[in-house]
Every structure is written in C-alpha cells, then in structure tokens.
Computed example of a mutant assay.
Amino acid sequence: MNSRRWHGPLADAALVAVSLLDVWAHFDSTEPLRMACALVAAFSLLLRRRWPFFTFLLTMPAVLFSDAVFSALAALYTLSSHSRRRVLLAMCAVAFTISDLTSWPNPHLDLSEPSTLVTFGYTGGTAGAAVFLGQLVQTRRDLSLRIAEISEARDHERMLTDQTVLARERAQLAREMHDVVSHQVSLIAVRAGALQVGARDAEAREAAITIRRLSVQTLDELRHMVSVLRASGGRPTELTPQPSLADLRQLVDNSGIEAELHMDLPEGLSPPVQRAIYRTVQEALTNVRKHAPGADATVRMGTEGGAVQVTVTNSAPTRPALPLPSAHYGLIGLNQRAALLGGVVTSGPTPDGGYELSLRLPANSAV
C-alpha cells in the first residue's frame, strides 16, 4: 500500500529531473526566453496526472522556442494514457511535430529539402511513439480492470455454486433426519410409553419415564433442526434457546443417574461461558450413562484464581456397559469450545475405577 502511494510522486519527480537535464543539455545563457519556456515545461509535469491536456499545452512553448522537448513528449504520453479521443491525440502529435520542425521567432520550414523530410519523419515517429505507448498503457490498464472484474464475477459464481450445493446437501440431510432418525426416535418414545404403562416394577417404570421424556425432547430438537436445515437460502431461522446455568438443576435431575450438584459460581457470567459449562456437564453425564451403568456422579462448580472450575466425577460402574456406537466427537467438541474461550478440558480415570472430566475457563471469557 505504501509503495503504491509513493509510486506516482516518485515517477513525477523522476520525469521532472530528466526534463531539467534536457534543459541543462540545451542551456543557452543568451536566450533567456527559451530557457524560461523550457523550465516551465519541465515543472509543469507535476500537473500531468490531474490536468494532462493543460500540461501538454504548457510544454508546447518549449518545443517552439527551444530544443528541450522531453517534457512535451512526457506530457503527450500522459495525455495519451488518459484520453480515448483519438482525433485529439493525432492533432497533438501533429502539433508537436510541426512545432519541433520550426524555430521561433524565426521559423524556417522547407519541405523541398530531403533533410527536412527526414527530420519530419523522425519527429513524427517520436510523437507517434509517445502516443502509441500511452495508448498501450491505457489498454493494459483496461485489461487489468476487466480481468479483475472477470475474476470477481467468477468468485461470485463459485460462491453461488457452493451455496447451491450446500443447500442441496442440507435439504438431503433434513430429509434423512426426518425420514430415518425422527422415525426411530418416535418408535423409541412409543415403546417407552408402552413400557411405562405395562411395567410392574417401579424401577423399570421410572426408567421408561426417563427414556420417554428424553426421546420426546430429542424429537423436538430434531424437528427444529430439520426446520433450520430446510430454511437454507431463505429467511434466517431462530436457533433453539441456548441453555444457561439456570437449566443445570433440571439437567442433573433428569439425567437418569444418581447425581449431586454443588454450584458456587458468581453471577454475571457471560452467555458463552454458561453454555460451555452446561454442555460440559451434559456431555459428562451422558458419558456416565453410556459407559458407567449404575455409577453415581458429583458435579462441582466454583471459581479459583479468577477462573471457573467445573468438575464432573463418577464412581466405578456396577454393571457392564452396553456396546453403543461412539465417534468420540463429544470430547473433541468440548475441547474446541473451551479453546475458543481460552480454557482447557482435561479428563481421565480416577484411582477408584471411576472417571473425572474437568473444565477450566477464564471467568471473563466471551465470544
């Protein structure tokens, strides 16, 4: 950015310096008018970017009255690189050629002499070269802009294509969730309801109630997720209300295991911290239910050194765990969530055969 900002002034200064060298090379102390015109032409190049045609006009007296013509050629090149009026450029090139061939205040132009024709061709070719070079730079600039526009349009088209593919995948995922997952969860809820009514054992009836309640909650969340997925590309859909610390008691009570909650946290924790605590406890209790049947759990929360400390500890299981599918994404998600908040999650077995999961977060974390 800085190099681009200084590129223009440095180029102008370089052109002025070369023009002054041209004036010095043709310096004649007996011709002050010619030297003054040449100096005006040299310093007028500082205006070439803002007023290219006016700058060219300021350089013409130097061509008429002196041999310092570099500033006029630079001005003609600048005008050609900014103007699209071909007739104007041709007239300026002709004006430069004729002015360079004459010598004021005593003009002398004899086209019958061969040397004059050679000089005319050389001068006209020099002016034409300045015009062609300016037009070439203008064409290159236009091509660069067009390429940038094409690249931007291609990126936009690629983004639209990606969005279309994503919308198609989300719609397919929504259909699968509705047709397969929701159907199976509904069957679980129905069978749990039947077990609740027909069970004679109080413990079995309580387990059926828990299964049915969790199935209904899961079904509601699935239906909302399906509606969110199907809303892809349309008006944004509100997400399910996010949990907070106020929901922890209900989470522990409805976990389906014997669990104790000891919470001593300050008020005013940010919503991201509260969600991280809730999801950590939820994942820990779910793992206890899956992998440690019959175990009880203890959930402790407090602050230590300006950080929130959450620990979920369970005892050893009293019966073998059922083989359930698991991709271990739960702990990975907890680690990622904690890392975003500047915290850390640790987990591992305890000496008595149980398991402990711990979360430590800065109390003032926010995302």
Rank of each mutant, 00 (worst) to 15 (best):
A321W: 05
G330H: 02
I332G: 14
Q309T: 08
H328P: 10
P325T: 12
T303E: 12
P317M: 05
G330R: 04
S315G: 09
P323C: 04
G306R: 01
T313V: 06
P325Y: 14
Y329Q: 14
L331G: 03
A316M: 08
I332M: 13
Q309R: 10
P323A: 08
N314Y: 01
N335W: 09
A316K: 11
G333I: 06
A327P: 02
T313S: 05
N314L: 03
G306E: 04
H328K: 13
A327D: 15
L324K: 08
V310K: 02
T303A: 10
V312E: 01
R319S: 13
H328G: 15
P323I: 07
A321D: 09
L322F: 08
H328L: 12
H328W: 13
G305V: 00
G305P: 04
A307H: 05
T318M: 09
I332L: 14
I332T: 15
S326P: 07
T311Q: 10
S326N: 15
P325I: 14
P320C: 06
S315V: 02
P320S: 10
R319A: 12
I332Y: 13
T303I: 12
A307D: 13
S315N: 07
L334C: 07
H328Q: 11
S326G: 13
G306M: 00
G333A: 14
A327N: 15
P317Q: 00
G333D: 13
P317W: 00
L331D: 03
R319W: 08
E304D: 13
L322Q: 10
Y329I: 15
V310E: 00
A316L: 09
T313H: 09
A316E: 09
V312N: 02
N335K: 14
T303M: 13
L322P: 03
L331P: 01
S326C: 12
L331Q: 08
V308S: 04
H328S: 14
A327S: 12
L324Q: 10
H328A: 15
V310Y: 02
V308N: 05
A327I: 10
Y329K: 12
V310F: 04
P320M: 09
P323N: 08
V312D: 05
T313P: 01
P320R: 09
Y329W: 15
A307V: 01
L331K: 04
T313K: 03
G330D: 01
G306I: 01
N335E: 11
P325E: 11
G306N: 07
